[in-house]
């Protein structure tokens, strides 16, 4: 009698149920995206977009027509023209070579120095470790520009007591000459960042459990033996981290060279890669070539850090 109605009726709730389940499934899959949206939007806008904009700008060529560009400004795809111009600029290539030389000398010196300071301050016989830790770290709080002005008082002949003292014993020193100014900058950078790197190493040293030291002492290990076979291998991750940061920092040299320009004739407007990109962008208005230079600097930092990490990983395995 009512078989048709009975069979038709349960079908409606079944379809409704299926719809609801589908809706629920859709809600479950979209909920994380809705919740992630604010983060993703900010991440894309502040992180991904600037990189894409810089890379895009490095492949763009702007052509102006008319005497003052009044008949139109046209931008188009430039291919690798901007990169060719950046790499064809002898001063820019020279600046990369200069910071590579700087890094090869300054980074190992600074890392060795910060490791020695950290080991000394963490040794049992250290006097006033808290005071010296703060004292060594203090230069990190001095901005690069101020540090350079401060040091230039010790570099400039006529102002510097160091130059005068050397002169009184018959030595002629020129901290700002064409061959020496790079090492004068290295001295400022080492002064500024050794304490900071030392703190990272100290943090890792403090994480070594005391049982290891006790076991070493029971075995009759002296302080040098403890430093060499226990502390140095265990602070390896901190040393790798500080070295990578220092390599990246070397390629970012800017303020020291720019400030020393006013007192050192040997520092030109393209002394470091960053200074070169800055000059190209804001003195020459060649924003696209400057973008190409910036991308090249970032690539160099990436390749150098990656090579160093690969090298240290291979050595440890």
């Amino acid at each position: 009698m009512s078989t048709a109605a009975e069979t038709a009726h349960p079908a409606v709730p079944r379809r409704e149920g299926r719809d609801r389940a589908r809706q629920q499934r859709r809600a479950v899959t979209s909920a994380p995206w809705i919740l992630l949206a604010p983060f993703l939007a900010l991440f894309a806008l502040t992180f991904i977009f600037p990189i894409i904009a810089a890379v895009g700008s490095s492949f763009t060529k702007v052509t102006r027509s008319g005497l003052f560009g009044e008949t139109g400004v046209h931008s188009g795809f430039a291919g690798f023209e901007n990169y060719a111009r950046a790499l064809g600029d002898g001063s820019f290539v020279a600046s990369i070579g200069r910071v590579l030389l700087f890094g090869m000398v300054q980074v190992p010196v600074m890392i060795a120095l910060c490791t020695v300071l950290a080991l000394l301050l963490e040794s049992a016989s250290a006097k006033w470790p808290g005071f010296f830790r703060a004292a060594y770290f203090m230069p990190y709080g001095v901005p690069g520009v101020i540090a350079t002005i401060l040091w230039s008082f010790l570099y400039v002949p006529g102002l510097s007591p160091l130059v005068d003292a050397a002169g009184s014993v018959g030595l002629t020193v020129n901290f700002l000459g064409p061959d020496t100014v790079l090492w004068s900058i290295a001295n400022i950078v080492t002064w500024s960042y050794t304490g900071y790197n030392m703190l990272i190493v100290i943090a890792q040293l403090k994480a070594i459990p005391s049982e290891v030291y006790e076991a070493a002492r029971v075995d009759g290990a002296g302080p040098f033996r403890v430093a060499w076979t226990i502390q140095l291998p265990l602070i390896r991750p901190a040393l790798v981290l500080t070295t990578v940061f220092s390599i990246i920092g070397t390629l970012q040299l800017f303020a020291e060279a720019q400030v020393l320009q006013t007192v050192a004739p040997a520092v030109n407007s393209q002394y470091t890669p960053n200074l070169s990109a800055y000059t190209t962008a804001f003195a020459y208005n060649d924003y696209n070539v400057a973008a190409a230079q910036a991308v090249l600097i970032a690539l160099a930092a990436f390749i150098l850090s990656f090579t160093f990490l690969r090298f240290t990983n291979r050595k440890s395995s």
Binding site: G69, E70, G177, N268, T279
Partner: peptide, 24 residues
């Protein structure tokens, strides 16, 4: 109009200045 008057003035000064710095 994003065009600077005498487009390479700053660049000319920099080129000369960088060159004169090579006197050292």
């Amino acid at each position: 109009m994003d065009w600077s008057w005498w487009p390479v003035t700053t660049q000319s000064f920099n080129i000369l200045s960088d060159g004169f710095r090579r006197k050292a």
